[in-house]
Write a protein that binds this DNA or RNA. Structure first.
Lengths: 255, 255
DNA sequence: CCCATTAAGTTGTATATACAGCTTGGGCCA
DNA sequence: TGGCCCAAGCTGTATATACAACTTAATGGG
């Protein structure tokens, strides 16, 4: 049972992705040029070119002819992140985003939370309960649990200025996400926090996010059904990036 | 103002995508091999290889070492389609799918419908109103409009056996989609068709789909909030296809 | 008739080479 | 000083070549 050798261009890709993941290479940092890889890695330039070109297609790096290759901003790199940050979506449409922290505590994971995060019952997690406002109108209740090991500084972070998703992606790239969307009738607490009418449905997004192969956060995002919707745009791969987002863009849009 | 020439590998890709789009090459058909492209198109084999390899990454074709290159099945080719067909999702989880045709008529597009399909007021469209059942329980009301030019046979198709999305994708690949998800209280007609309790919210998916750059269909899909949810899984690009769906998989899941 | 071998065709990868176009910075000249 | 030009380095593309691995069909021997 010999370990089957990966192709060399894949080894190069893995190497560079590894340096990005472990923080050795940070967003906007310069990645070794093709000729540097030729010398240091003992490959031909075409092989180095293929590795860097595929990393470009996959959103890990950006290349500028004449300048070099640079690690992408996290924002541009992963559609997983596109899907996350309500603060950016609000400011993008020119509105003011504010956030109220209702709860920020350390707990022991039990039941559903422990299962969702794939940790032992009783493992330390942080519990965040935030209300996001768009122009002083509440638009999202964020009920989030974070594995304590992953983000030890979570308990002292001021989430009024930096959203949890921005904070978490700064710690380590979020690499995989699972999302469930439901239409429900909210309980009294959520209804009051979102200033919803009696009987008004809410759109709930339940999201688990992985980093380095392990779930690190689990969130329930409640939105008022009368004021919010989720929009997505799907373009086939190969569509020029300038025209559309690479893969999928999901955002909450006022209507 | 000289037209700037595209790279040759891109010309090859466009050529093959064109032959797939116009029906010259159909799913499972054999695509010219690299060496055939070398001879007929006067390019080097590496250039042909790049074109076919990128078409593989983009899901247009599948390649098998030793056999050749073949046009992908529509199902595997586009995540846009992954997102469409409720019948497949139901049968995939081992349940029985049936469909009741409430309305199947030709109309003149007015107001919202004409705007959504980007056609003149009064243009001919087909209107379909279907109820989809999972094991005799109604799970989706499909209220769909189709541009008549695009699918002239729409009026006589039996949609109890072939869903509209399957029928439409067989006519021409659906290349782009826009989707909006809302939580609403359904009107009486929908509530009755989905056998929903009073005050129960519904999850509504509103979807427009493009083919060859033009909107061809517009659908409102109503689901009972108590019985249905939308799930999505997001994996970073570059993840092996065997592990996860290429890009995004959205499906309705019973709970 | 059956099976093994072989040959041809295909994809997958890797290398060496070449030229075009872009960006930056340094040096030169007026 | 100010502006221009050029060289160096980078990416983007294209070609020719080579070898490995896989698939299929033909071939031939038992």
């Amino acid at each position: 049972m010999t370990a089957l050798a990966k192709p060399r261009y894949q080894q190069l890709k893995d190497l560079i992705i590894g340096r990005i993941s472990n923080g050795d290479l940070r967003p906007r940092d310069r990645v070794p040029s093709e000729n540097e890889l030729v010398e240091s890695m003992n490959v031909s330039r075409m092989t180095a070119n293929r590795a860097l070109r595929e990393l470009t297609d996959e959103g890990y790096v950006d290349r500028i002819a004449g300048r070099g290759t640079f690690v992408s901003d996290f924002r541009a790199r992963s559609h997983v992140l596109e899907v996350q940050n309500i603060a950016d979506e609000i400011t993008r449409r020119g509105h003011a985003h504010t956030c109220e922290v209702v709860r920020q505590s350390r707990q022991h994971a039990r039941g559903e939370i422990a299962r969702a995060l794939d940790v032992e019952q009783g493992t330390d997690v942080f519990h965040l309960l935030l209300v996001h406002f768009e122009n002083s109108s509440p638009v999202q209740v964020e009920d989030r649990y974070v594995v304590a090991d992953f983000a030890p500084g979570c308990i002292e972070q001021d989430f009024r200025t930096v959203t949890p998703s921005a904070y978490l992606t700064a710690i380590s790239p979020l690499q995989e996400a699972e999302q469930v969307v439901r239409a429900t009738l909210p309980n009294a607490a959520v209804r009051q926090q979102l200033q919803m009418a009696d009987g008004e449905p809410s759109l709930v997004v339940i999201r688990r996010t992985w980093s380095h192969g392990r779930p690190v956060t689990f969130a329930r995002l409640h939105h008022p059904g009368s004021r919010y919707e989720l929009t997505g745009h799907y373009a086939p791969p190969g569509t020029p990036k300038s025209t559309t987002a690479n893969v999928v863009e999901l955002e909450t849009i006022e209507r």
